[in-house]
Computed example of a mutant assay.
Amino acid sequence: MGVRIRRAEQGDRDLVVRLLDEAFMDDPVSGWVFPSEEYRRARHAGLMAAFTDATLADGYIDLVEDDAAVALWMDMPEEFHAPTEAELAEQAAAVRAAVDPDNERVEQIARWTAGIHPVGRAHVYLWMIGVVPGRQGEGLGSALMAPVLERCDREGLPAYLEASNPRSRALYERLGFVFTGTALDLPDGPTLWPMWREPQAS
Rank of each mutant, 00 (worst) to 15 (best):
A94D: 13
A94V: 14
A94Y: 09
V95W: 15
R96W: 14
V99C: 11
D100M: 11
D100A: 08
E104M: 11
E104Q: 09
E104L: 13
E104N: 05
R105S: 02
R105E: 11
V106R: 10
Q108P: 08
Q108K: 15
Q108C: 14
I109T: 07
I109S: 06
I109F: 12
R111N: 12
W112H: 05
W112Y: 10
W112A: 14
W112K: 13
W112N: 12
T113W: 04
T113L: 14
A114H: 02
I116C: 15
I116M: 15
H117D: 07
H117T: 07
H117Q: 10
P118A: 02
V119H: 14
G120P: 04
G120S: 01
G120F: 00
G120W: 02
G120K: 05
R121E: 15
A122P: 06
A122K: 03
Y125V: 01
L126F: 03
L126G: 03
L126P: 01
L126D: 06
W127Q: 09
W127C: 06
M128Y: 13
I129S: 07
G130A: 04
V131G: 03
V131F: 07
P133S: 08
P133K: 06
G134T: 09
R135W: 04
R135K: 10
R135M: 13
Q136V: 03
Q136C: 06
G137E: 05
L140H: 10
L140F: 12
S142E: 11
A143G: 05
A143R: 07
P147I: 09
P147A: 05
V148W: 14
V148P: 15
E150G: 03
E150I: 13
E150W: 15
C152P: 00
D153M: 13
D153H: 14
D153Y: 07
R154A: 04
E155F: 08
E155V: 08
G156Q: 05
G156W: 03
P158T: 01
P158Y: 05
Y160P: 10
L161I: 05
E162V: 03
E162Q: 02
E162A: 02
A163E: 05
S164P: 03
N165L: 12
N165H: 14
P166M: 12
P166S: 08
P166C: 07
R167E: 10
R167M: 00
L171P: 01
L171I: 03
E173C: 06
R174Q: 07
L175F: 02
V178A: 04
F179M: 11
T180F: 11
G181W: 09
G181C: 01
T182R: 12
T182F: 02
A183R: 08
L184A: 04
L184R: 01
D185G: 01
L186G: 02
L186P: 07
P187L: 06
P187F: 05
